[in-house]
Design a protein around this nucleic acid. Structure first.
Lengths: 389, 389
DNA sequence: GCTAGTAATGAAACTCTTCTTCGTAAGTAA
DNA sequence: TTACTTACGAAGAAGAGTTTCATTACTAGC
C-alpha cells in the first residue's frame, strides 16, 4: 500500500535523480537537453541532478560529438562500470558463469565441466572457481561484485533452498542460498534455470519487451518459465513453472520418444540421441518424423494448458532441442491451433546455451532497475562505490 | 518505462494528495495527525493537502469524537459518495446488478431473470433495466454513475467483444462493450465472470489480501480465474483462464458425472441434478460418493496443472457446486497432494451467488485505486463531481 | 581569416511546497 | 476554578524547480 508515499522535497529530488538514471540507462550517452526532455525537467534542474549523480559516481561525462551546428553539448552516460554482476548456471554436467556490467553487457564468460554425480562440495567449489575465473578474466576483484545470481535445475523454495532436484542427486535439500552467501560477500540470488531462460528471452532474446510470455524449456529435461505482466513469475513458494510434473502432460517421459527412435545408431550417448532423431526428421526420415510427432503430441498437452490458462502474447521454444525448432514448431503450432482460443505467436529461442547465464544476469539487472524505479521509502540509492575509494 | 517520472513541485503536491486519499480510503475516518503519520508529512502540510481535497469534493469532515483527553481533533473521511459504480453479472438465466459507492459498499441489488435463448436485444434490454433499477432503488441518477462493470460468461477479446459463448447462443460475436457504451454515458468495463469472481475472493472473500491465487469456478460450466501478483490476470488477448477447453482436463464433461448419477430422481431439472448427487454424497451414499470421486478426478487434473504452473498461495473453490465444498475439498486435496510440489491452501468460497457482481464492483474500484496509486504523468485526478453542480 | 548564425551553458530572480517553531484554543480531570 | 493535555493556526526558513537573459563555443559562408 505504501509504495508511492510522496513526502519531502528531497523526495522529489530523489525521484528526479532516479528518473535521470533510468533515462540514461535506457538510451546511450545523452546530452543534457535530451535528458531534460525525457525526464520532463527544465535544463537547469537537470544539470543539478546530473551533477549530483556525477558526484555520487553514477554518471560520467563522455567527450562531446563535434560536427553539429552550434556549441557542442556535453554528453553523459550511465556508469555501468560502477559495479559488476555475475550470472551462474548450475547444470548437471556444467557450471557456466559470466560477468557483466550493470547494463548487463557480458565481459567474461567461462564453462566448468562437472560430473552429475560429483559430491556436493566439489560442485560448490566449481561454482566458486567459475565465479573467480570470470573475475580474473575481466581484471576485477570480489569487491567489485555487487550480485551473484545463480540459476539451477531443481525445485526451489522462497529461501533459496533446493527442495528437490532429480538431475543433481547431491543437490536435493541443500540450502544453496546459505552456502553461497558464505562464499560470496555480496548479494546472492537463486532462481530456477528455466525461469531465468524465460527472463533472458524477454530481455535480450526473441521476445524482447513482451509482457506475457510462456517459455518452454525443451531438452532432456523439460521445464517452463512464465513472464507475466513483464515480470518473472516465481509463485508464492518460488516453485512456479513445474508443469512437467503433471502426469497427464507426460513431459517427464516425452523425450523418450526421441531417444528411443530406431534411427538412433546403437551406442549413441544419451546426450546425443534426441539430436540424431531430430536431425533425421529434418531430412525427412519417416520413422524419425513419427517419433517427433509423438513427442510433440505430449509437448502440446502441457503447452496448450499454459496457453489456455494464461493467454500469453508469445510462446518461446528454448533449451537444447530448440536447435531443431524448425522441426518442432510447425507440428506444435498445428496442435495448438486446434485447441487454443487465441493463438499466441510461436517462436524459437535465439540465445543458445548461454540463455540461463544471461537470464541470471538479467535477473540481477532487474533487481537494480527495480531500485531505480520503485525505491522503498526509506531506502537510499545503492552505493555506486564501496566505501573507501 | 516512464511511469514514475518525477518532475515539478506541483507533482509533489499531487503525490501527497494521492497519498492522503489512499490513507483515508484504506482506514476509516482519521484525524489530521493520523493522516500526517501515515503519509509521512508534517501536520501543516497535511492540513493544506486535506483542505485542497475538501475543496475538490474528495474528502469531507465528520464530527469529532468527544471524550478524549485534550482538544478533540477534527476528523476527515473519504467521500465514497462522490460517485457510484454498478457491477453487472450476465448469466444464461439471470442478469444481476448491484450499485455500490466508491468504497465498493453495496447499496442496492437486483436480479432479473432471462431465458437462455432470449434474443440479443431482450438480454441487452434486461441489462439496462437492471442497471436502472439499482439506480432508482438507491435514489441515484445516471449522472451519478462513474462506471458500469459487466461480467459475462464466454470468451472475450481485448476490445470487449465476445468471441465465443456456449451458454448464451446470441452472445457469440457480439461487440458487448460497444453496445453498452451506447447505452450508458459513463465508463464501461467488460470482464469474464470467472475472473471477476476470483477478484472478489481476494478483495472481500476468503482469500483477502492474497497475492497469488487460483479460483476454480465449479458449476454446470467450469471456469478459472487467476490473481497474480495481487492483480487480476487477463492475458494478452483477455482470454486467460480458459483451461476448461483443454481436452485432457475433461472439464467440459466433468459435471456429467454428477448429473448422470443414479441417485438423481427421474425428472429432476438439469439445474438441480448435480446438487442432488452432492447432497447424497454428503449423506454418505456410496453411489453418489463414487460419482463425486470421478468428478473430482477430472477436476483435479486441471487444478493440478494450474497449481504446478503458478504455485499459488491459495486455491479457492467457488461457483454453484461450492455450496457442497465440504464434499469436494477433501478428495481434491488428496489428489493435489499426490502431485504438487508445494501444496497451496485450499478453501471454499464464502461469497455465494453475488460473487460475480461483487467482483465487477471490485474491478471498478480497482481501476479507481489505480488512478490514486499510479496516475499517468499527464492525467489529472478523476473529477469527484461532474461539472455543473 | 573574418563575420553571422546556431545551440548549449551559466547565473540571477522568482515561485511553490514543505518543515520547524511557537503561541493560542478547546477540551478533560481534580 | 485551575492545571493538564492535545489540537490548531500563523510566521519564518529552507529546498527544489522554473523562467529569463547574457555568454560561450562551434559551424557555415564570404
Amino acid at each position: 500500500m505504501a509504495n508511492l508515499r510522496g513526502g519531502d522535497l528531497s523526495r522529489l529530488r530523489q525521484l528526479n535523480a532516479l528518473s535521470a538514471i533510468r533515462t540514461l540507462r535506457g538510451a546511450g550517452p545523452l546530452t543534457l537537453s535530451a535528458i531534460a526532455e525525457w525526464t520532463g525537467l527544465s535544463r537547469p534542474s537537470t544539470k543539478e541532478v546530473v551533477d549530483e549523480l556525477m558526484a555520487l559516481g553514477w554518471v560520467a561525462e563522455v567527450p562531446p560529438t563535434p560536427g553539429t551546428m552550434g556549441r557542442p553539448a556535453r554528453r553523459y552516460r550511465f556508469r555501468a562500470d560502477s559495479g559488476y554482476l555475475v550470472g551462474v548456471d548450475v547444470g548437471a554436467h556444467n557450471v557456466r558463469a559470466a560477468l557483466a556490467d550493470l547494463d548487463g553487457e557480458v565481459m567474461a564468460e567461462i564453462r566448468q565441466p562437472v560430473e552429475p554425480t560429483a559430491p556436493l562440495d566439489d560442485r560448490l567449489a566449481a561454482i566458486e572457481r567459475a565465479v573467480r575465473a570470470t573475475l580474473s578474466l575481466s581484471g576485477k576483484t570480489m569487491t567489485d561484485l555487487w550480485t551473484v545470481a545463480v540459476g539451477t535445475t531443481g525445485v526451489l523454495n522462497r529461501e533459496g533452498r533446493i527442495t528437490y532436484c532429480s538431475a543433481i542427486p547431491a543437490w536435493t535439500g541443500l540450502d544453496l542460498a546459505g552456502r553461497l552467501r558464505e562464499m560470496f560477500p555480496c548479494e546472492v540470488l537463486i532462481e530456477n534455470d528455466s525461469r531465468l531462460a524465460a527472463l533472458a528471452e524477454t530481455r535480450r532474446g526473441t521476445a524482447r519487451n513482451v509482457q506475457d510470455m510462456v517459455f518452454l524449456h525443451v531438452a532432456r529435461r523439460m521445464g517452463a518459465g512464465l513472464i507475466i505482466n513483464g515480470r518473472l513469475h516465481r509463485g508464492f513458494g518460488a516453485a512456479a513453472g513445474e508443469i512437467a510434473l503433471l502426469p497427464q502432460a507426460r513431459w517427464i517421459e516425452a523425450p523418450e520418444h526421441l531417444n528411443d527412435c530406431a534411427v538412433v545408431p546403437e551406442g549413441t550417448s544419451p546426450e546425443d540421441a534426441a539430436g540424431r532423431t531430430l536431425a533425421a526428421a529434418r531430412d525427412g526420415d519417416q520413422v524419425a518424423l513419427a517419433a517427433v510427432d509423438r513427442y510433440v503430441d505430449d509437448l502440446a498437452i502441457g503447452t496448450a494448458a499454459m496457453v489456455l490458462l494464461l493467454d500469453p502474447e508469445v510462446v518461446v521454444l528454448g533449451g537444447g532441442f530448440s536447435r531443431s525448432a524448425d522441426v518442432l514448431l510447425a507440428p506444435l503450432r498445428r496442435r495448438l491451433e486446434a485447441v487454443c482460443v487465441r493463438m499466441p505467436d510461436l517462436r524459437a529461442s535465439t540465445l543458445g546455451d548461454e540463455c540461463v547465464v544471461l537470464g541470471a544476469i538479467d535477473y540481477a539487472v532487474g533487481r537494480l532497475d527495480q531500485q531505480f524505479s520503485a525505491p522503498e521509502s526509506g531506502q537510499a540509492l545503492p552505493q555506486p562505490f564501496p566505501a573507501g575509494r
